[in-house]
Write a protein that binds this DNA or RNA. Sequence first.
DNA 1: CGTCGGTGCGAACGTTCGTTCGGTTCGATT
DNA 2: AATCGAACCGAACGAACGTTCGCACCGACG
Lengths: 214, 214
Amino acid sequence: MPAAFAAVALAPAPPDATPFDRRLGEILHAAAELFAEQGYAATSIRDLSRRCGASLAGLYHYFHSKQELLFLVQRHAFQTVISAARAATPPELPPEARLRAFVASHLETFLAHRPWMTVLTHEDEVLSGDYLRAIAALKHDYYQLAREIVTALPLPPALAPRVAVMSLFGMLNWIYTWHQPKRDPGAAVLGEQICAIFLRGAAPTVRRRRPARS
Amino acid sequence: MPAAFAAVALAPAPPDATPFDRRLGEILHAAAELFAEQGYAATSIRDLSRRCGASLAGLYHYFHSKQELLFLVQRHAFQTVISAARAATPPELPPEARLRAFVASHLETFLAHRPWMTVLTHEDEVLSGDYLRAIAALKHDYYQLAREIVTALPLPPALAPRVAVMSLFGMLNWIYTWHQPKRDPGAAVLGEQICAIFLRGAAPTVRRRRPARS
DNA sequence: CGTCGGTGCGAACGTTCGTTCGGTTCGATT
DNA sequence: AATCGAACCGAACGAACGTTCGCACCGACG
């Protein structure tokens, strides 16, 4: 079983990793790109061997099956998202600040590691068995964090918390389908605007609280 | 070329259609279900022949290729969504009422014809060539309608209209991943809650305008 | 009565798939 | 120097894929 690497850095490679883990990291990176571009089912192991300059058989030294390959990509991606969100949202923060921190963390991670996160959101139900259970557990952890943060807000009584959480995730997870780095705002500005919608709405009836003294 | 049927009813079949169109409707219905359950790439024509009790070769009397099959499913679904939304949102409506009508129409259509709409949102970029262009044009029409409706609202100046439209679509299109008919509210209540979030936010600072006299 | 087009099917074609087999290379270890 | 295991590869296996071929059925129409 391959040792998991540090669960924080996704992009290049941790310099202290073993050659095996470094190479595995490259392979997972290429797999994430291909899965994001073509979809899991439409990507062949031969595509992957072409993309990362290895032979078909040689790849199987790093995973046992195509399903495990997807599992490793998704687990790595989820661990990155979750550890970033946990670090960014200490429970001591006031509710609204904590929400803003959560949204900012989510967007920064998603825009910085887009192929990985595309695989996370788009290939959601294709795993099965123990792989599915393990990923579902990570997903549950992440949603649980969001649930805590959202339910700490003073929600209107008519608004079901589950609908609020899922609507927030809808705004956040839909971004991979439309965001163009050259055209659209970056993570910080985008986060502010989405928080503005989620907290105060796109057509608030009144001014914000405590307008700055002029 | 198969004549398109009436573009309104998706579920059973128009009673005045030719036998060919009625059978085609059944096939597209089964295809929509399979594509929604397994994904387009992971669904084989043999799966489809099993599901609708036809032979493999016989199916090819109703479409020329698997790509065209997906195209027919997506076009039919988009025509249904668009005609419903157009009928529900006459331009004379005041901006907020028009938005509420749009959201209600979207949710009713999506919850009533879930497999079709799952295919629409999940298999978004798999077509190519003329098929892609035709579906992209329909998608553009639908987004254009949403853009008109959203930009008629008094958006805060700091909120990019494109971000507002895409966030709204994010909330709406994400629903197919989490909504459980037995657990979650129906289209009407769900529409109210999502409109409440989108218009006034999940944590508004002040009461709504004009509280009813008590 | 004959035939003709729409509808259907079994069988097959060529391709690609995920996976495995057998063998080679090579640095580290004994 | 001998040995071992990790890393790697060319070639192949059986299965499944999208699609097509050739033929049977059958109601409509001359």
